[in-house]
Design a binder for these strands. Structure first.
Lengths: 221, 221
DNA sequence: GCTGGCCTTTGATCCACATCAAGGTTGTTC
DNA sequence: GAACAACCTTGATGTGGATCAAAGGCCAGC
């Protein structure tokens, strides 16, 4: 469980208190939750859909730093202004808080603090793993690492390890892995030809049973 | 102030309590503070020297995820086992705590929690910036970004913006920037030839006055 | 069920950085 | 102060993935 059910740590009376400050909201695909530089006073929990977080350079080059799925938590890593943008990849439903309301709750519900520190710690570990990927892995290792991450996160949400449903475009995968669209496509085709996976449709990946994805993603071919 | 003086949030009585659980220690260059997979029950604050954090692949490829300097804090991002290794780049002095002792102190000193959340948030922002560097920047932009980071962190420790003293080897710089030693060396030479910087010795970089390092590091050449 | 647009795949070529290979520099030991 | 070792720089060549270019697929709207 990475971010799953931030809300679920709150029970009974806590939920009642929360009810006063939480607002549900829906956002269409390709619209922003917020953009880099916006004042950061909100915190989000994803209920449904996929969100991407990213940073860009002045000339448009973009690095996606993470994808968020139902249960994931968003907006922790900020004080002052957001240092990255958050955009809906699919239609998305969220619940949103004011950050100051949450700070107030720390006093009454110390579990919240533990939970936030755990979330921060997990995100940092994931970020370090991604730095290793971006700095040192080959295109094939990146794709396999990506499939592994997507499969494991689907499992945490109670879905099967395979088939993997990719809710984002090839362009988003490329911007997440530090590659181009063409390299993502070619590498997937190559893996298909090798029998590692099947691609019945661009967004559906079926992993070959018995293939050690974790080892292959680390170059232990 | 990124991590500076974690200890300094504790005053008077707090310091007395801390004194009972903090231990000072010295470590020689090239020795480990801990390695990936070690049980994580300690937390460190750097007093003097440089430390590198890194992750490696089975075949030895290595990605340095961060350098730590005096005042920086280490060991937050863990529960269970460390997910990365920490090695002294120079001779290092640290103060170390048992993590369980620190957890106990949360109750009495809530400032500690705020401080930890701030540290976590800053580290996450730095990690995202590094992902943008590793995924999308050219070799020259990476070197300039690195010099900028080193210069700004030196300034936060009360040192001048230039000259920049590089306490780590070219190999470490390469493993931090996702490049090879040769590319690091060549890129520095090229910047020297362009008049952007001077390299009186390999570990000393003098920036040309008036050069907009921040813009150049983002490709706004 | 045809048309247009968007996304993905495939193909041909290029290039930034890696790799392979010497030298140069600096500091250390005896 | 000679010899070695470790590190850094420079040079020659190679290559994985980028770029440039052109087809496919697939779905939406009419």
């Amino acid at each position: 469980m990475r971010h799953f059910t931030f809300c679920s740590v709150l029970q009974g009376k806590e939920l009642e208190q929360l009810a006063g400050i939480v607002h549900r909201d829906a956002t269409a695909a390709h619209s922003f939750l917020f953009q880099e530089g916006d004042p950061a006073h909100e915190v989000f929990n994803i209920l449904d859909g996929t969100v991407k977080l990213y940073k860009s350079l002045p000339d448009g080059r973009t690095q996606i730093t993470g994808f968020l799925f139902p249960g994931d938590f968003l907006g922790l890593s900020t004080k002052g202004d957001y240092s990255y943008s958050a955009e809906a990849v699919t239609d998305v439903r969220v619940c949103r808080f004011q950050k100051r309301d949450m700070t107030v709750m720390f006093k009454d519900y110390p579990k919240l603090v533990d939970r936030l520190l755990t979330i921060a710690s997990d995100e940092l570990a994931a970020a370090q793993e991604q730095m290793l990927l971006l700095g040192r892995k080959t295109a094939q290792e990146r794709i396999l690492s990506f499939l592994r991450i997507m499969s494991e996160r689907a499992q945490r949400r109670g879905q099967p390890a395979s088939p993997i449903h990719l809710s984002m475009s090839r362009a988003d995968i490329a911007d997440y892995l530090g590659l181009t669209i063409e390299t993502v496509s070619r590498t997937l085709t190559k893996l298909k030809d090798k029998g590692v996976l099947k691609l019945p449709r661009p967004q559906e990946v079926i992993l070959a049973a018995g293939y050690d994805l974790a080892a292959a993603a680390e170059g232990d071919a």
